[in-house]
């Protein structure tokens, strides 16, 4: 039971962080389909720090490690989202194509980087794996049987920050105006380009954080060939289900996290094990649930009105 709670919370944190990223970006008017790729790159940034920063558990400062990993993931995510922002905002490219391309590029780039790094260190090693067994312990604190991952706390902090930023500051109001009616926003002197850049870069930050959280959830080695298994898109489903509202997104993330966690721990429950359902069904579960949920929630969409449409000064 504790294990289920632990997995639910960690997967929910991932979904929450990434969905908040999608939320900020969409409120500024850019659909961020590249979240999947941003997660991979963010995870890569964090994993590289975990691999190369010397750390022995119990001796070195866990806090320094944590901050370094955090910053690396954020930096990688933000840098990667520049590619999306530049293409979609400045060159007015189709956001769906660019997003998809960046997802493919994220996995390919991470695989190439990790493989060539592994091969350079050991000519016989052609795997795309990074191991961070020791370094990962830096983020874990045991409370009884419950293993608290520090990123869970980061997710909660980010939830509060994003809420305040979007709904309690001048910046947030302006950002949302650019997603609803950019021409109107521009007419009162708001720079739509700057606001949209800010939205996309913030989503890069949150996506990168989500990526590093995902690869430290439950495992201590990551194979970058696999990307992040559709979690970026699952987060977008969470965002739609959460009606673009930070707190509702948090609720949706908990629900989806629960279904994802079931796939990891169903063996621990006697009655679930007795049902003898193949593991593939549990793997499918979060995706099936999200389809059903979307079918019931998409009809009256509360999406920002101008999302997905490149801003053109000439259109009024």
């Amino acid at each position: 039971m504790v294990l289920l709670l632990q997995y639910t919370l960690i997967f929910s944190s991932v979904l929450l962080l990434v969905a908040l990223g999608g939320c900020v970006s969409e409120h500024s008017g850019v659909i961020n389909l590249a979240l999947e790729g941003i997660m991979v790159i963010g995870a890569l940034g964090g994993a590289l720090v975990m691999k190369f920063l010397p750390y022995t558990h119990g001796q070195s400062s866990a806090f320094v490690m944590f901050i370094c990993v955090l910053c690396a993931a954020i930096l990688a995510g933000v840098l990667y989202s520049v590619l999306l922002a530049f293409a979609c905002i400045n060159l007015k490219a189709d956001q769906t194509i660019v997003g998809t391309a960046l997802n493919m590029l994220g996995t390919a780039l991470a695989t190439v980087v990790v493989k060539s790094m592994n091969t350079a260190m050991n000519p016989d090693d052609h795997s795309s794996e990074i191991k961070y067994i020791d370094a990962k312990k830096a983020f874990l604190t045991n409370i009884g049987k419950f293993e608290l991952n520090w990123f869970m706390i980061v997710a909660v902090i980010m939830l509060v920050i994003v809420f305040i930023l979007l709904y309690k500051t001048k910046f947030g109001l302006r950002l949302r105006a650019c997603g609803e009616h950019p021409q109107a926003a521009a007419s009162v002197g708001i720079s739509v380009f700057k606001m949209r850049w800010a939205g996309v870069l913030l989503s890069g930050l949150l996506g990168g954080l989500g990526g590093i959280t995902y690869i430290t959830a439950g495992v201590s080695t990551w194979k970058f060939e696999n990307g992040v298994a559709g979690f970026g898109f699952l987060s977008l489903a969470v965002m739609i289900f959460g009606a673009w509202d930070p707190f509702r997104i948090a609720g949706a993330a908990l629900l989806f996290g629960l279904f994802r966690a079931l796939g990891n721990v169903y063996n621990g429950f006697a009655f679930l094990k007795a049902l003898n359902i193949p593991s593939a069904v549990y793997n499918m579960l979060p995706y099936i649930v999200s389809l059903i949920v979307l079918a019931f929630t998409s009809k009256k969409s509360r999406a920002p009105k101008a999302e997905g449409i490149p801003y053109d000064k000439g259109m009024r």
Binding site: L83, D94, V98, A101, L105, A108, L109, T111, S116, T119
Partner: peptide
């Protein structure tokens, strides 16, 4: 040459190509 590089470099190239295809309009 697999002693230095990996086959995924081709995936990388095709991903870059579609990213650029987004700019066709531009």
């Amino acid at each position: 040459d697999l002693s230095h590089y990996c086959a995924q470099i081709a995936d990388f190239i095709s991903a870059v190509i579609i990213y650029l295809c987004g700019f066709v309009l531009f």
